[in-house]
Amino acid sequence: MNAEVRYVVGDATAPVGGGPRVIAHVCNDTGGWGRGFVTALSQRWRAPEAAYRSWYRERDRPGNDFGLGAVQLVEVGEGLWVANMIGQHGIARPGRRDVPIRYDAVDAALRESARHCVRLGASVHMPRIGCGLAGGSWDRIEPLLTTRFTGRGVPVTVYDIPAAGSAA
């Protein structure tokens, strides 16, 4: 059963629809949290940031899988989770020539997130992951969503923020 990628204007931290839902987003591998979509997550819930920071701090402990391509699922409400996906190496800095996005890591994280969604019977909701501060291209991300989610019957909703001065 194939699902679809649906585009809406709205807030990805307030996912539309019913049933179990997973909000997916891309994190860096440096332990940094404070710019981009994560600020909206932190305004709504404390748990995703706290879990990410702990996951990073304890990255050298046995059994901790923190690193590129890893996923941390954090429950933030009944039937609602945030997937912290490590898909960027470092952070964007002035003068840095390469972009932080790592498409292979994003693909691995999406594959793991899709497993969680199938297990939970959940839809997945996200901004245009990896295309803001990580410097990625939506033309490279969107096909990964089709391969990892919709081909497995997991509906995907992508949220674009409203244009300045317009109502959502």
Score class of each variant (00 low, 15 high):
Tyr103Thr: 05
Leu145Asp: 04
Pro143Ile: 01
Asn84Glu: 09
Ala47Lys: 14
Gly18Ser: 13
Pro15Met: 05
Leu110Asn: 05
Met126Thr: 10
Glu142Thr: 05
Gly31Ile: 08
Val99Ile: 09
Glu4Met: 09
Ala168Ser: 13
Gly95Glu: 07
Arg44Gly: 04
Glu142Cys: 09
Arg35Tyr: 12
Pro94Val: 11
Gly69Leu: 06
Pro62Glu: 13
Glu78Trp: 04
Val74Lys: 00
Ala12Leu: 10
Thr150Glu: 02
Ala164Asp: 10
Gln43Ala: 13
Gly19Asn: 08
Pro15Gln: 03
Met126Val: 08
Ile129Pro: 00
Gly87Met: 12
Gly67Arg: 03
Gly153His: 07
Val106Glu: 00
Asp60Phe: 10
Ala108Gln: 04
Asp104Phe: 04
Trp45Phe: 13
Gly136Leu: 03
Gly130Arg: 01
Asp65His: 13
Asp29Thr: 06
Arg44Thr: 05
Pro20Val: 06
Thr150Gly: 02
Arg96Met: 13
His125Val: 02
Gly17Lys: 03
Ala134Leu: 05
Arg57Asp: 13
Leu80Val: 06
Glu78Ala: 15
Thr30Met: 11
Val154Pro: 04
Gly87Arg: 01
Ala122Arg: 01
Val16Gln: 06
Gly77Arg: 14
Asp11Pro: 10
Ser54His: 09
Pro155Gly: 06
Ser113Leu: 14
Val71Pro: 04
Leu145Tyr: 06
Gly10Lys: 00
Arg61Ser: 11
Arg119Trp: 08
Val156Met: 11
Gly135Arg: 02
Asn28Phe: 10
Ala163Val: 11
Cys27Pro: 02
Ser166Thr: 14
Arg35Gln: 10
Leu41Ile: 12
Ala92Ile: 09
Ser54Ala: 15
Asn84Ala: 13
Val106Gly: 00
Glu78Asp: 14
Tyr56Asp: 00
Arg140Pro: 07
Ala108Asn: 00
Val124Asn: 00
Asp107Met: 10
Ser113Val: 13
Pro155Ser: 11
Arg115Met: 14
Ser113Met: 14
Leu73Val: 10
Gln88Ser: 08
Glu49Trp: 03
Asn84Pro: 04
Gly10Thr: 06
Asn2Thr: 11
Leu120Thr: 07
Tyr7Pro: 00
Arg93Trp: 15
Glu49Cys: 07
Ile141Tyr: 02
Ala24Gln: 12
Gly67Lys: 04
Arg111Ala: 15
Ala167Ser: 13
Ala134Asp: 15
Ala122Pro: 01
Val9Ser: 13
Val26Phe: 00
Ala12Gly: 08
Val124Ser: 00
Val118Cys: 13
Leu145Arg: 04
Val158Pro: 03
Val156Trp: 01
Leu133Val: 11
Gly153Met: 10
Asp11Met: 08
Asp11Cys: 10
Gly63Ala: 09
Val74Leu: 03
Thr39Leu: 14
Gly151Glu: 14
Ala134Thr: 07
Ala105Val: 02
Pro62Leu: 09
Thr157Asn: 05
Ser137Tyr: 11
Val74Glu: 02
Val158Tyr: 01
Ile161Lys: 04
Ala3Gln: 06
Leu120Phe: 15
Glu4Ala: 12
Pro15Asn: 02
Gly87Ser: 11
Val8Leu: 15
Tyr7Leu: 15
Phe37Thr: 10
Asp29Lys: 08
Glu78Thr: 10
Ile91Glu: 11
Asn64Glu: 01
Ala105Thr: 05
Val26Ala: 08
Trp138Arg: 07
